[in-house]
Amino acid sequence: MLEFYGYWISTALLSVLYLASAAIYATRRDWVRQALTKLGFTAPFLIPFMIVIKVLGPVAILSRISVPLSDLAYAGIFFHLLLSGLAHIGVRKPAGALPAAIGLALLITSFMTQNDARDMPSPYIRAAMR
Rank of each mutant, 00 (worst) to 15 (best):
L83I: 08
A97F: 00
A117C: 09
I89T: 13
A22H: 01
Q114A: 08
I65Y: 05
A26L: 13
I51R: 04
L17A: 08
A128H: 08
V32D: 00
P99V: 04
K93A: 14
L14Y: 02
K38C: 02
K54S: 13
I53Y: 10
G90E: 06
V55A: 05
L107K: 03
P68L: 06
Y74P: 07
A101S: 13
L36F: 11
K38T: 07
M120C: 01
F78G: 11
A95T: 11
R92H: 14
A22S: 05
A75F: 08
R64A: 08
A97S: 03
S122Q: 10
P48K: 11
S84T: 15
L104V: 07
A23Y: 11
G40M: 13
S21R: 02
L98S: 07
I24Y: 07
L62I: 15
V91G: 04
T109C: 12
N115H: 02
G76M: 09
P94C: 02
L98Y: 08
A20E: 08
I53S: 10
P58N: 04
K54W: 03
K93E: 14
D119L: 15
F78V: 14
S70M: 11
L14I: 06
R126L: 11
L56D: 00
T37S: 11
Y124I: 12
D119M: 14
A97N: 00
V52I: 15
M50H: 10
L39K: 05
G57H: 03
L36W: 07
P123I: 14
D119F: 10
A100G: 05
V16T: 12
P99H: 02
K54Y: 06
R33V: 00
V55D: 01
R28K: 09
D30Y: 00
A20Y: 11
A127C: 07
F49P: 01
I24D: 06
D119K: 13
N115C: 04
A87M: 08
I24K: 10
M120A: 14
M120N: 11
R92A: 15
F49A: 14
T113I: 03
A35Y: 00
P99M: 03
A20W: 12
G96T: 10
M50G: 03
A105C: 13
S84H: 12
F45N: 14
R29I: 10
I125M: 14
L82V: 13
A117T: 08
I125L: 15
F41V: 05
A105P: 04
V32P: 00
T42S: 15
Y74C: 12
N115S: 04
L86S: 05
L56R: 01
M129R: 14
Y25G: 01
L14W: 02
S15F: 10
A127S: 15
A20S: 15
R64L: 07
V55R: 02
V55W: 01
L98R: 10
I65W: 12
Y74D: 09
F45V: 13
L82R: 03
A95F: 12
T42I: 12
L82A: 11
G40R: 13
A20F: 12
A20R: 13
P68D: 03
V91S: 05
A95Y: 10
L86N: 07
F111R: 06
A105R: 08
H88K: 02
K38A: 12
M112S: 11
R33D: 00
S15A: 15
W31F: 08
L104I: 11
D119G: 15
D119W: 08
K38Y: 01
F49H: 07
L39D: 00
G103Y: 04
W31L: 09
Q34C: 05
N115G: 03
A95M: 14
G76V: 06
L98T: 13
A26E: 05
